[in-house]
Each structure stands twice: as structure tokens, then as C-alpha cells.
Computed example of a mutant assay.
Amino acid sequence: MKILVFGGSFDPVHKGHIAMFKKALQVVKPDVAHIVPAYHSPFKDKSPTPFKLRMQMAKAAFGPLSKKIVFDDYELKCGGKTYSYQLVKYLQQRYENAEIYLLVGTDCLNDLHKWKNPQYIFKNAVVVAGKRRGYTENKADFKHIFLPGSFPKMSSTRARAHILASGAIPEDKITPAVAEVIVKNDLYGLQVHRWLKEHLKPNRYLHSVNVAELCALLSDIYEVPIEKAVQAGILHDTGKALSGPELIDFCKKHRIKVPYFEDMCRCEPLLLHSYVSAWLAKHEFAVKDKEVLLAISEHTLGSLQMSTLSKILFVADISSKDRKYKDAFVIRTLAVQDLEKALLYAANRKLWFTIDSQKWLCPVGIELWNHLVKCTA
């Protein structure tokens, strides 16, 4: 009896998953196929998307492909991190004299030796691999089958980042059936976009989307996790929902620590929005990542010890494609070539904008400028 098993976080299921599973059904011709959503993948943080909803997406995506599919909640019943060798053992116990075919992507294939108890997998299962475009085949010393053809280079991480950045489902990656589950349950930041549309002016909302998209682009270049960059970008201006006096009251009420607070309240209270945005990200949108929160709080004035993420957001905020002044294009062009030069140029432009507007110069911005100049001297 042939058993095909396909496990994964499926957070969300994308068209690459579907194409690979469909081809595996044709090649292996299993008597039964198990789709096994992970409860907690050994290689990832625990998904905030409930298991129940990821199972719904799996059923919506894979259900139409065959009547021989078992949607298996084995990992949910285990209730913790579950390893592939344990999954193979479970199937051996469930089916007598079973031939087990373990479906993986080629990004996993080269790392199988690092998995928990890999020899058990190699001895008791045949690995079925779908090649992603651009894959260079390595010699594998265990039983394996390569599916014919190649499969689109997609990832659930990028699908989630796309939805969080734009508020839209990427139709080239997600099927309508899966999209329906996402929309119905407000997954992957759709609720963030609804809040932003309700609280920000249309041009400010558009700016937030554009900043998130530029952050995504720069995160690839400078090797920052894309979801962190997009999260910082889309939430960076939530504090702009409040007026100057409201920002002052908000900071006092919630005891938000702000440098030069009294001067800022008297001279330029709108600068408080960065710190309020970080507070809202943490308390309204449950952002726990300290680096993301710090980047949001620093996106207007900067700091002397900015992380790469903070630099990306600082630059993206002043140079997103909705910014129409000529220097925005210069900074944006610099940003994809040299982030440090783009940061220096952006800090320079911010200071000159402030001086030309005859506004108060916050010492934090001056300190940043002197620090950057000293570092390049």
C-alpha cells in the first residue's frame, strides 16, 4: 500500500504547494495521501495562525485534487514540536506493510541529513522532491524521487509579507478558495489595513503601504527578515491618527518615554507620533519584536545605534514612491546601492527641510547627523 505524506506549516497554502502535491499524486499514484499541517515546526517559531484555520486552508487547497486524501491532525494531537521520523513511525503503525513516500521541496532536500533521526527516515521512507526553478542537484545517498519538471519559487513567508504590506491577496500565489479563508478570518494583517483605513487620512494610508513595500525591497538587499521589515513599514505612522495635543495627552497618559519631551511638546508635538506609533504597534497590534518596535520609534529622528532595520525604515519613510520631491528619487536610488550613503543623504535632507520650514531642530536629529558625519570622516 502506497502512502504519500505531505507535511508543512501551510501558513498559508500557496500555488507552489498545490502544484507539487498534484504532480506527486500523478507520479507516486498513492492508495492514500496524508496532508499533515504542522502544529509547531521544529525549524520555525510557532505560527500565530491557529491550527484550525491552517487546516481549513489545506482542505480548501488540496481537497479538490483527490478523493484519497486524509487531512490529518496528528501533530495537533501530539501538541508540540513533531519530527518527520515520528510522522513516518505513526504511518507505519497506522498502515501495515506500507510504502511511505515523503514529499518535500528541494529547499528541504539538501538539509535532510540535519533533521532529527534522519537515518530512520531514509530507511523507512522514499523521499519525493519537487525541484524549484534554479535548483542545482546535489547527490543524495538515500532513496529519493525527483518529480518531473520544476515548480514556482514561492514561499508562505513572502505571501504573508505581501498581504501585510498591501492589504491584498496575491492572486498569482494564492487560490481563490484559500483567499476566501484568509479574508473571512482577517489573517496576515488584513485587520491592520482596516484599522489604518479607518484612522488615517487616505494619503497617509497610501504612504504607509508604499513605505512597507520599499522596506520589503530593501530587506532582501540587506538581509533583514521581510516580515519584520514590512511590519515596521506598515505600522510606522499609526500615531499620525492623532493631532499634536492628542499626542501629548497620549504620551502622558501611557507614560511613554520620549527624549526632550518637554521641548518637543512645546515646539513640535507632531514628532511624538513615532513613539506613539511604537506604543500602538505593541499594545494595539500585539507586536512583540523589540527590533521592530525600536525601528518604528526611531523612524523620524533616528538614533546613534540604529539597527539595519531602523536604517531601512528611516530611509524608506523619506523616499517612498508617494514622496514627490526630487531628492526622494535620489535617496531611493542610493538605498538599493548603499544603505549607509542613503541614510546620510536622508538625514541631511531632513535637517534642511526642518531649517527651511523654520521649525525646531530636535537634538536627536542633530546628534544623528554629527554621528554619521564622524563615521564617514
Rank of each mutant, 00 (worst) to 15 (best):
V104C: 10
V104D: 02
G105N: 12
G105F: 06
T106Y: 02
C108H: 12
C108W: 06
C108E: 12
N110F: 01
L112K: 02
L112D: 04
H113R: 09
K114L: 14
K116Y: 05
K116D: 13
N117G: 02
N117F: 00
P118T: 02
I121P: 01
I121C: 05
K123R: 15
N124Y: 15
A125R: 09
A125C: 08
A125D: 07
A125P: 00
V126K: 08
V127Y: 06
A129W: 10
R133I: 14
G134L: 10
G134D: 07
T136Y: 08
E137D: 10
N138L: 13
A140Y: 13
F142A: 06
H144C: 09
H144V: 05
I145P: 06
L147G: 03
L147R: 06
S150P: 01
P152H: 12
K153E: 15
M154E: 10
S155R: 07
S155V: 00
S156A: 15
S156Y: 05
T157P: 00
R158G: 00
A159W: 01
A159L: 01
R160V: 02
H162D: 11
I163V: 14
I163F: 07
A165D: 04
S166G: 05
S166H: 15
G167H: 00
G167A: 03
G167F: 03
A168D: 14
I169S: 05
I169Q: 07
I169V: 14
P170S: 12
P170M: 13
D172H: 15
K173F: 13
I174R: 03
I174D: 05
P176A: 08
P176K: 13
V178F: 03
A179V: 05
A179T: 05
E180R: 13
